[in-house]
Design a binder for these strands. Sequence first.
DNA 1: TAGTGAACTTGACTTGGATCAAGATGGCAT
DNA 2: ATGCCATCTTGATCCAAGTCAAGTTCACTA
Lengths: 249, 249
Amino acid sequence: MIQNAAIIPLLKDVARQEHQLQLTCDSCALYSLCLPLGLHRNDLETLDSIIKRSKPLASGQALYKMAASFDSLHVVRSGAFKTTLTAADGREQITGFYLPGDLIGMDAIHTGQYQSTATALTSSSVCGLPYDRLQDLSQVIPALQQQIYNRLSKELANDKQLLMALGQKTAMEKLVSFLISLSRRFEERGYAANRFQLPMSRIDIANHLGLAIETVSRLLTQLSNDGLIDCQGKMIELLDKPQLKKLCS
Amino acid sequence: MIQNAAIIPLLKDVARQEHQLQLTCDSCALYSLCLPLGLHRNDLETLDSIIKRSKPLASGQALYKMAASFDSLHVVRSGAFKTTLTAADGREQITGFYLPGDLIGMDAIHTGQYQSTATALTSSSVCGLPYDRLQDLSQVIPALQQQIYNRLSKELANDKQLLMALGQKTAMEKLVSFLISLSRRFEERGYAANRFQLPMSRIDIANHLGLAIETVSRLLTQLSNDGLIDCQGKMIELLDKPQLKKLCS
DNA sequence: TAGTGAACTTGACTTGGATCAAGATGGCAT
DNA sequence: ATGCCATCTTGATCCAAGTCAAGTTCACTA
């Protein structure tokens, strides 16, 4: 892509800025959340050299599909994604939501195929990390190896928390845990912790938590009525965090 | 049940052999299932040198407890383990069962603390892998790094399959998926695929699958009545695998 | 600015699996 | 052997959340 110095100042559109291709990791707003965190300058440049900064994806577009040949991990640059497992009979389970800085596709590493389908929830963009190159690089950059171990481990720990929610919690506890967890993740990314736009539909939330969409809708209404949240469509405000935390024990 | 006195010493020998301390990985029966698979001879010796071959654990004994300081991953040498998350209110969720060759504790890597409690289900033994040493070693042994990535990724993929089960499947589908998955894991370890001893109680199965123990009991009875399994206490025989596979779609 | 379809809400009813209750079985310590 | 306590089974009842149904709102497109 040709960068014309003359038009850069004209890029006032925030959305477009969010999606524009970064040239390097060290000029990226996500640096402090992202994989290269802690790498030395020359290691960072080496990592930079293998990253494929791909084009934006439209809402609903697949980044990759289940059973496709696995070649790259992806970091969310902007927007949000969901990953979906599809059973033989067509039933689907959303196994995760991914926000900027998150690494997608780690469950595919041990096979040659993606184990799930990754779909953009909004207009989004990613950085592609060819896995064979990343593997080689992590062999010679200790900080990178450590980051990858940590990311894998963290997703594992998250999934186990979700197992707890799906196995033991009531519908209300599931939903509130989900909202609290989203809040924490937005906060980590420098956004407001208590007021945010849900990037996913009620259908997606319901599926992810193993609930019916009607249940999610009813519970959000109930939380609103109880004054614990303010909920206008996809805009959510958490009004009483301590009380909410009590609700998911 | 009375065993012929003459063979008792032999049985004791087998049991002791299973738990006896191996001196090296290359003399270990689990070699082909275990982390060092694919390592060159001298790399194997280096890995050997960091492994702590710990004493056997009795049934019910904890290998480590949630929130304890994390220092080692563990490979199951014999027996079986469960890992448990405990919520603030005391509710528990069994997040995984681990058989010989499996790696326990990977969800703790990204923090300084174990994220769950690991408990022996039967008399068991493990090899301890001090994580800092393992990390250093995997930095210089590419095959080891790759093995660790693969193990992490595989557990991630497993957990996501379990999320699908907990989120979308009926009680019967959950239970049958669980039996099929156990069967495959025993088979991978060279045991009979269709006839095995459940290492865990009904209570543990129920908890792991997000069901009540009564439901598990009833469904096992039903599967027995339908001639799909034979079930004598903890001894399970899968009589009609194709039909069972149909049941979990 | 009206029309369309998807997403969402709300209400009425149903049900799968939980809970409660009461034995049966089985492993183990004495 | 015997008694004890865990685990497991089976039956009866209940309820949280699912399903079905009927709007309402919202985002787009024409």
